[in-house]
């Protein structure tokens, strides 16, 4: 049997076992950090009281990257509503912010999902397993973020946050093995 035939038999068996044909995907082995560029510059973060919450969590053994990405799409869609539209950022005191690098006023949603990445981008780290999920928030978004990450969905106001919170419940119940390790990066605190 040729290598080609053996490989095709293996792939056919793998695809059959998975019962799905994955979307074709190519990834640079040195994975990109999906958050690159989506988190405001540090000076802007500090002025706006922008916090970044990081959940480091272990996936259930059977969970694949594709399933995490599918969850991501749903979660991001729930955040993509008019109530959470990007708006010019303001300092904690309410004054507007000018980004020193660009000279412009940055505009961001108050509650942002920055992505889920492999916790370890080792060259040959196997796919999946331990990942980190990052959110950012400023202004009222800080309270929104705290609510969706910690409270039962139907107890949360405003109402548009409830479907967001439900996706968090899905994350915890269907994808996550155990509890997440929570890290809060608050640039307004002395480091």
């Amino acid at each position: 049997m040729s290598n080609r035939t053996r490989t095709l038999l293996y792939l056919r068996a793998l695809i059959d076992a998975d019962r799905t044909l994955d979307e074709p995907r190519l990834e640079p082995v040195r994975l990109h950090v999906r958050t690159a560029g989506s988190i405001p510059p540090k000076a802007v973060m500090a002025a706006a009281g922008y916090i970044v919450v990081v959940w480091t969590w272990r996936t259930k053994p059977e969970v694949t990257r594709a399933e995490i990405e599918q969850w991501e799409l749903g979660h991001a869609a729930e955040l993509d509503v008019a109530e959470n539209a990007a708006q010019p950022m303001t300092e904690i005191g309410g004054a507007s912010i000018t980004d020193a690098e660009t000279g412009t006023v940055p505009s961001r949603p108050m509650l942002a999902y920055h992505g889920t990445v492999l916790a370890r981008r080792s060259v040959f780290a196997p796919p999946g397993r331990t990942v980190q999920t990052l959110w950012g928030a400023w202004g009222e978004g800080r309270q929104w973020l705290e609510a969706v990450l910690s409270r039962a969905p139907d107890t949360i106001e405003p109402e548009w946050l409830q479907p967001v919170a439900r996706t968090i419940v899905t994350l915890r119940s269907e994808l996550m093995d155990g509890e997440p390790e929570v890290t809060v990066i608050d640039p307004s605190l002395p480091l």
Binding site: L8, I15, R25
Partner: peptide
């Protein structure tokens, strides 16, 4: 460059 192929792209590349 080094690129990771998932099952589907690996299958196509093999064919």
């Amino acid at each position: 460059a080094l690129t990771e192929l998932n099952t589907t792209t690996w299958l196509i590349a093999t064919l």
